[in-house]
Amino acid sequence: MKRIGVFVCHCGTNIASKVDVRSLVESARELQDVAYAADYQFMCSEPGQKLLVNSIREHDLNRVVIASCTPRLHEETFRKAVKAAGLNPYLLEIANIREQCAWVHDDREEATRKASELVSMAVAKARNSSALDSTRIPITKSLLVIGAGIAGIQTALDVADNGYDVMLLDREPTIGGNMVKLDKTFPTLDCSA
């Protein structure tokens, strides 16, 4: 059985001043499979995440929708919190009601209506989401540096000092790049070779 939790973030007044957060929570409760809905001042804050984790456990939620800022900002943050609550992090959907709603619409009524549409879209998507697992791929621990001027040499030395193999490649017959052509370098006038 799907049990979706919807969490609406006020983002201080960023969202709350343009979106009627309470009525958004009310409308979210009406959506199919939504088992719980709540709002909080700052979902991304420590107490906000705690609320999320506790609610998932308390209400036995298995899908989460967070209505907040753009997923490009805090998707990772919330995925970690969802994971901490024992859920697969990919069972999270975010409704972008800040950048793409509260910040771009002046009319409170319209913004609230749009926010509820965005939440219902996110809930619909969450209803169809499934747990995803990443695969692990072993890596070759050696580095290719293309270009052996000061940038390439410095990178090669730093990585090599950490114990990894480096191939330092240059198309010229010698390494050194432009830097070795220089006489002294500003502002200290020390030598460049």
């Binding site: 052996a148 030395l157 090599a160 490649l169 240059d170 198309r171 390494i175």
Partner: peptide, 27 residues
């Protein structure tokens, strides 16, 4: 420069060019 040449973990391939790159991160 000399530090790079003498570093046991660094191989210098001078007078060389990359012809093709295949694969993906780590591989």
């Amino acid at each position: 420069m000399v530090a790079a040449a003498q570093h046991p973990n660094i191989t210098i391939a001078s007078y060389a060019e990359v012809e093709r790159v295949e694969g993906f991160i780590g591989n």
